[in-house]
Amino acid sequence: GSLMYASIFGNVSAIIQRLYSGTARYHTQMLRVREFIRFHQIPNPLRQRLEEYFQHAWSYTNGIDMNAVLKGFPECLQADICLHLNRSLLQHCKPFRGATKGCLRALAMKFKTTHAPPGDTLVHAGDLLTALYFISRGSIEILRGDVVVAILGKNDIFGEPLNLYARPGKSNGDVRALTYCDLHKIHRDDLLEVLDMYPEFSDHFWSSLEITFNLRDTNMIPGSPGSTELEGGFSRQRKRKLSFRRRTDKDTEQPGEVSALGPGRAGAGPSSRGRPGGPWGESPSSGPSSPESSEDEGPGRSSSPLRLVPFSSPRPPGEPPGGEPLMEDCEKSSDTCNPLSGAFSGVSNIFSFWGDSRGRQYQELPRCPAPTPSLLNIPLSSPGRRPRGDVESRLDALQRQLNRLETRLSADMATVLQLLQRQMTLVPPAYSAVTTPGPGPTSTSPLLPVSPLPTLTLDSLSQVSQFMACEELPPGAPELPQEGPTRRLSLPGQLGALTSQPLHRHGSDPGS
C-alpha cells in the first residue's frame, strides 16, 4: 500500500510541476520586462504597450523563439521550412505564380514574418522605404497627419515599386495596425538579389506586381527641396563636378596662354591676372594647382613670374625650331616645348642647366612650328573623362623618358669634360720664339709635331656638333674642335714665318 501511495504521489506532483513550468517561465520573463521598464524609466503609455505586446506574443508563440529554433537546422532544411511557412503567400499572390521551385525557395529564405499588435506603428512618415510588405492577416491604416487616407487588409501590398527607383524613397505617411496583424516583408536588397539570379522571372514579377498603396513621397523628385535634403551631399558634389568641367572646357578654348597655377587659371584673360583667384576666387580649394602655386600668395601677385606667355621676339635665322618633346602628345598638341628640351639645344645650356634650372624654367623657349593648343594648358582630366590607368601609364612613360634624357646628358657632359682635359694635357705650358741651342744640326726643328685630335665617332658628340652648327654659343662658352686643319689655341699665330727665318745662335768662333 505504501508503494502504491508513493507512486501516485510522485506522478501527481510531476504533472503539477509540468503544468506550472510554463507559468514560471512566463513570470520570469515578465519580471525581466518590468525590470527593464523600471531601469530605463519608460513612461506609462509606452510601458503599457510593452506589457501588452509581451503578453500577446507569449500567448501567440508560447514563449518560443522561432528564429532561434529555425537557425538550429541546416540551410537546406531551413529553405523547406521557410517554404512551408510562406506557402499561403507564395501560392495566392499573383506576382509569385509561375516561378520555379528554386526561385520560390530563394524568396522564402528572404521573407521575414512580423507580428504587430493593435496601435503599433510599422512605418513612420519620413522613414526610408527599405522593404516591401505583404499583409497575411489583420488590417492596417495609413495616416497623413491625423487623416486616415487608406485601410488595407489581407493580401494587400504596400511599399514602393523598387524597379522604378535606384534609391529608396521616404514614406509619405504613417502605417498603423488596427488589429493583430501578420506581415511578410522582404528587404529591398534581398528581393533585387533574387531577381538578379532569376532574370526570366524578374520581368514577370515586375509586370504582375500591383502595389495597393504606394508609400513613396511624390514630392521626392529631382530638383525638389525634399530631394535635395535626401541627396544633399551627392547633389552638391555633382554640381561641383559639372562646374569644374564647364570651366576646364572654357580653358581649352584659349591656347595662347600657358599658366603654371593649374587648370583653373589657364583660361583667365590678361585683365584677371591681378585678381586673387581668377574664376576660382569664390572657392580657392575647388581646383588643383601645381607646386608653384604656393608662391602666388606673396605680395606682387600681378607681377609674379609664374604666369607664362609666349615671347614675341624673333628667332635667329640659324636657330632650330626646338628640341624633341618629352611626351608623344607634344608633337601634336603643344605650341611651347618643355623646359628640359631647351637644355639640349647647345653645349652652353648643358654647362648651365643644373646651376640655374629654376631660373631657366621661365626663360624664352623655342617654339614648335605648329600653332596647336598648349601642352601645359590642357586641363586636368576628371576620373569620369580619362581612366586612372591611362594617366598612370603616361606618367610612367614620361618618367622613363626623363631617365633616358638624364643618362644621355650625363654621358655627353662626361665626354666633353674628358676631351677638354685631354686638350689641356697635350698642350705645353708655354712657348717662346727663341729656342735653346741643340747639340747638333738636327735641332733646327722649332717644335715637335703635334698629332691632331682623333675624329669623334660617338653619337652623342655628333649631336653636340649638330647643335653647335645651329645654335649661337654665348661669349663665355668653350669652343669644341671642328672639322678641318686643327691648330692649338695656345700656339702663336705666325708659326709659318718662324720656319722661314734663320735661327740666331749665340757662340764663340775658336779662330777669332
Rank of each mutant, 00 (worst) to 15 (best):
Ser462Met: 11
Pro475Tyr: 04
Leu456Ser: 09
Pro369Lys: 09
Ala166Asn: 04
Ala370Glu: 13
Ser136His: 06
Ser243Arg: 12
Ser445Thr: 11
Ser207Leu: 07
Gly346Ser: 13
Gly323Asn: 15
Ser208Arg: 10
Ser382His: 15
Met197Pro: 02
Arg367Tyr: 07
Leu326Thr: 12
Thr212Gln: 03
Gln399Trp: 06
Ser208Asp: 14
Val148Gln: 07
Gly264Ile: 10
Ile157His: 01
Glu253Ala: 10
Ala266Asn: 09
Asp146Gly: 08
Val194Pro: 01
Arg137Asn: 13
Gly496Asn: 05
Leu398Asn: 01
Phe244Ile: 15
Tyr165Val: 07
Pro288Val: 10
Gln466Gly: 12
Gly267Ala: 10
Val175His: 01
Arg176Leu: 06
Ala477Asp: 15
Asp396Lys: 05
Leu448Ile: 06
Lys332His: 10
Met327Thr: 12
Arg400Asp: 15
Gly173Trp: 03
Ser235Gln: 10
Leu480Thr: 10
Ser348His: 08
Leu498Cys: 12
Glu210Tyr: 03
Pro270Met: 12
Pro449Asp: 11
Ile350Val: 09
Asn155Met: 05
Arg505Cys: 13
Ser286Gly: 14
Thr218Ile: 13
Gly287Phe: 05
Ser272Gly: 10
Leu209Glu: 02
Thr425Ala: 09
Ser345Pro: 07
Pro291Phe: 15
Thr336Asn: 04
Arg176Ala: 03
Gly359Val: 08
Gly281Pro: 11
Lys250Ile: 09
Leu426Trp: 15
Pro299Ala: 08
Pro474Gln: 13
Leu503Trp: 13
His187Asn: 12
Ala430Trp: 10
Ile151Lys: 01
Ser462Asn: 11
Phe234Asp: 13
Gln363Gly: 10
Val149Ser: 03
Glu472Leu: 08
Ala397His: 15
Ser333Ala: 10
Arg188Asn: 07
Lys185Arg: 11
Lys170Asn: 09
Phe201Gly: 03
Leu192Phe: 12
Gln363Tyr: 07
Gly256Ile: 13
Ser508His: 11
Ser224Glu: 12
Leu402Asp: 03
Leu215Tyr: 01
Met327Ala: 10
Arg240Tyr: 10
Lys154Cys: 08
Asn377Gln: 01
Arg315Met: 03
Asp412Leu: 03
Pro429Lys: 05
Pro449Ile: 05
Ser348Gly: 10
Ser313Arg: 11
Phe351Ile: 10
Pro284Ala: 15
Val391Gln: 15
Arg137Gln: 07
Asp296Ser: 11
Glu319Arg: 08
Phe344Asp: 09
Pro429Ser: 07
Ser445Asp: 07
Pro314Tyr: 15
Gln501Cys: 09
Val427Tyr: 09
Thr415Asp: 11
Val434Phe: 09
Ser508Leu: 08
Asp509Met: 05
Thr252Ala: 12
Glu141Trp: 01
Leu456Tyr: 09
Ser508Val: 10
Ser410Thr: 14
His187Val: 09
Glu471Lys: 04
Glu479Gly: 04
Pro485His: 15
Arg386Cys: 13
Lys185Ala: 13
Tyr180Glu: 09
Ala433Gly: 08
Arg188Thr: 07
Gln363Thr: 13
Ala433Arg: 14
Ser290Tyr: 04
His506Leu: 03
Pro305Val: 13
Phe201Lys: 01
Ala131Thr: 06
Leu340Gly: 07
Pro263Thr: 10
Ser286Cys: 13
Leu308Tyr: 10
Pro474Thr: 09
Pro428Phe: 13
